[in-house]
Design a protein around this nucleic acid. Structure first.
Lengths: 352, 352
DNA sequence: CTGAAAGCGCTAACAC
DNA sequence: GTGTTAGCGCTTTCAG
């Protein structure tokens, strides 16, 4: 590995001049610059990041801490972050927190060893206070997918409540009034907010959501599948099921189809996230688009701004909106009725 | 940030002693060790990785270069790598290569800036020579998912050909003899090897695979969908379709179902990888398990060994085997016949 | 067993 | 415009 000294020697200048050229400072004569550039090319010189970070005490490094990279949602987030980081000439270091506060904190602390101030964190379990304290230590801390009032300007999050509203409004527009919700037991806010949004809309329309129609379970395919089976067995009469996310929606569809219930003819299903898994299931899943990759890219810019020019960062929050993606898993009952004349199935019993 | 000096001062020893304690060397008196440990805890001291790497010229850093983290396959790989790396006290830095040789090389070079020798690379497009040359520069280079004879001891790969054999054998055993293959146009070896394995088995059984039954297309849902449509339109008579991977299998199922062809009753479908997407589609996809996460973990240990104790590394290759995961998308024609007595559909025409 | 000290590669005053 | 130089925090001989 060639060092700055090697370059300086070959170019016949001092290391300071080389450093200036590398940094694109313009207090260097053209002649010197050219010599240096040639030497750099010849030696295939690359500045040693460790030395640079050690000296200048900043790292051009983004630490990404997410629960688990193998979930597609986080893969998409990671991709968004990496791409944006590359554009800014930052590297990204990743750590799985495995959904545990302890591992999460350890992951963040370990990032500090690298002098990394830029951290993008997706935290489900740490409490607001912990994160607020963390923000004091890490000037570039950005929280993704969660809103904490005390550090609102570091939160890049999604309006889940409006998302919930949009889902309910869409279902209502499609003629559904008997709706069940299969949501997550996890204590982060998303499930609660989405549910709240949906319920608001229903109540505003004079509809009631009995507790028996809201089932909380593990937020994965299997959890949703079991919950749906239980719902079917209960003999509940619903024409649509809203799942907390796409994975769960898939579980719902699995259970429905195994019970011989047609989707969407008999029961409609909605998901949330718009993962490619929506196109894997049949019928294709109607869902809310969660702009993960965009939010990852945004968070990347934000953390960099936060450390480099904190004054520029608006002291407001960074809120994204979900978008409805209508596919095939929700039946328009108006249309449905028009098509199957006389078949008045505006609220088919889920129990076959 | 507390430094080693702070700790030394507080403990009343020299920085050398602190360093010894940190590294667990046992040439330190118990008294000193305890003082130092207390100081470390009190100051929440963490060694600065940059200084350490600068001085000792090694980085405890694994660079992971994959085409695109948002594909579930790479997410699983990343997870396997991260988990193993954490156990070894290594960090992992990730870079997307976006399926381009140039970006890939740049990603690797940029890792060098960190003094990173440990690189796990999933390369689809760089040629063998480039990678062999790279291996000379990076003592810890490990190639995942590809076999290059010249650097066999750095290759962690899957026996795709045997995988292909297993698929064909399974289909044969299930009574399928009219099989089509929807594979990938990508020039990496996997598609070719899998195809070769399957064709071998068929030929060994006196069956012939006409060229018209092997369709190459983009390795994604959409590509497979179009290809399948074309196959259907061609009026080909097949009872099973083997897709290059799960994503493509999903595309195949989509096309089939849209054409009103029942899976697996009329046409069976097989994928490869065993991504969770297999459980999203209906019927659940029969596939070959690709032990990605395990291979990621293995590659992690290997790269570390390669840099730390190169003599221990066996000069053999590191070959994994895929495994059949039977689910619901392949019909056993024997059983099928038994069930639907008299319905002799051992090779139903794909054209309805 | 412990400490002093050199120096990894780079940056940024400061001097010229 | 350019060079000299003092460290950044750490490891590691080498003396003691």
């Amino acid at each position: 590995m060639a060092t700055i000294k090697d370059v300086a020697r070959l170019a016949g200048v001092s290391t300071a001049t080389v450093s200036r050229v590398v940094h694109g400072l313009d207090l260097v004569s053209d002649k010197a610059r050219i010599k240096v550039q040639k030497a750099i090319a010849e030696l295939n010189y690359r500045p040693n990041t460790n030395a640079r970070a050690l000296k200048s005490r900043k790292a051009e490094l983004i630490g990404m801490v997410t629960p688990n990279l193998s979930a597609p949602f986080f893969g998409a987030l990671a991709s968004g972050i990496e791409e944006a980081a590359r554009k800014h000439n930052y590297k990204v270091m990743m750590r799985n927190s495995l959904y545990e506060t302890e591992t999460e904190i350890e992951a963040i602390e370990s990032l500090r060893e690298h002098g990394c101030q830029n951290i993008i964190l997706h935290s489900d379990f740490s409490d607001d206070e912990t994160l607020t304290r963390l923000a004091e230590e890490f000037s570039g801390l950005v929280i993704v997918n969660r809103f904490i009032p005390a550090i609102a300007n570091r939160c890049v999050w999604l309006d889940n409540q409006t998302g919930g509203r949009m889902m309910a409004e869409y279902l209502l527009r499609s003629g559904h009034t008997d709706i069940a919700f299969i949501s997550s037991t996890y204590k982060n806010r998303d499930p609660v907010d989405r549910l709240k949004g949906s319920q608001q809309v229903l109540m505003e329309n004079g509809l009631n959501v009995p507790d028996s129609r809201v089932i909380l379970t593990d937020p994965d395919i299997q959890g949703a599948k079991s919950a749906t089976k239980a719902l079917i067995d209960s003999g509940a009469k619903v024409s649509a099921i809203v799942a907390y996310n796409d994975m769960m929606a898939v579980g719902v569809m699995n259970a429905l189809q195994e019970a011989g219930i047609q989707v969407p003819e008999e029961v409609s299903v909605m998901g949330f996230d718009d993962l490619f898994i929506c196109l894997a299931c049949h019928p294709h899943l109607t869902t809310m688009k969660y702009p993960v990759a965009e939010m990852g890219a945004y968070a990347t810019s934000l953390t960099i701004e936060l450390t480099n020019k904190p004054d520029t960062v608006p002291s407001r929050t960074h809120l994204f909106m979900p978008e409805l993606v209508a596919r095939e898993s929700v039946l328009d009952l108006g249309e449905g009725i028009a098509k199957n004349k006389g078949d008045d199935s505006s609220a088919s019993s889920i129990a076959s």
